[in-house]
Write a protein that binds this DNA or RNA. Structure first.
Lengths: 133, 133
DNA sequence: CCCCATTTGTCCGTATGTATC
DNA sequence: CGATACATACGGACAAATGGG
């Protein structure tokens, strides 16, 4: 198994187990590379994997940290409403302030414009009370 | 703007415009790099961007091609059903045969196990006919 | 406001591994 | 088996953003 994936697995386990709690700063790329005796690229790639899973966020000049789960807004769908999901473009990620590893929920409601929502801020259900006819 | 992003923008536009139709093979990394007078890494990164958006898929030893839109299965949600979305882990991508740049739909239905579905194969709506009481 | 140290981002070059045809 | 093509890995160099002093 590739070095970067092994490292990604180690860090993912530490995150899932709570050993690395949400909000925790991760070591820098060079420190990570040094600690695990790998090249910088392997460390970078491992972080990239975790970013792509939405577990970690990285800010240039700052470093990486464990992402905090978002508060989820409930979306109730009627029979005429449609939701599809796709990944945002880099431009959309900037525009909507979406982290890497977070999908885009496209909500199409009758007579309204499409709404674009970060997938980690929503939970989708059917309508609570149904209308007749 | 970074070279790889400029190249990604060019290719994305060609895909969106239909100039590069679904199923079309893209030039190899070296050819792409040569054609646009960039390094191989820039070409690779551009392809990585498009993969992360679900526009392109790459097979080792084969090359890259424009992904074909999937047939979408309609999912009708009741009031008790819950859907959340997250990115799959590399292991899950292998397990469920999901391309890069495709999210995972987690469908939780009353009394059943969670169902995991590729986000590009579903469209979600509310229940067509509502039950009373 | 500038300077500086830190950290990530970009880019290039090179080499080797591995899957496909 | 060879040719092609992508994947991994390391090295170095410079750019760009951040934060502290």
């Amino acid at each position: 198994m590739p070095v970067y994936q092994q490292l990604a697995d180690i860090l993912r386990n530490q995150i899932r187990s709570g050993d690395l709690a949400p909000g925790t700063d991760l070591p820098g790329e060079f420190k990570l590379a040094e600690q695990y005796a790998v090249g910088r690229e392997a460390a970078r790639k491992a972080l990239a994997v975790l970013r792509s899973e939405g577990l970690v966020a990285t800010r240039r000049g700052e470093g990486s940290y464990v992402r905090t789960p978002r508060e989820r807004q409930r979306i109730e769908l009627g029979a005429a409403d449609k939701v599809t999901i796709r990944m945002p473009t880099p431009a959309e990620r900037v525009e909507l302030d979406i982290d890497e590893g977070v999908a885009l929920v496209v909500l199409a409601r009758r007579g309204t414009e499409e709404k674009l929502l970060p997938s980690d801020e929503v939970v989708i259900t059917g309508k609570r009370e149904a209308q007749k006819g």
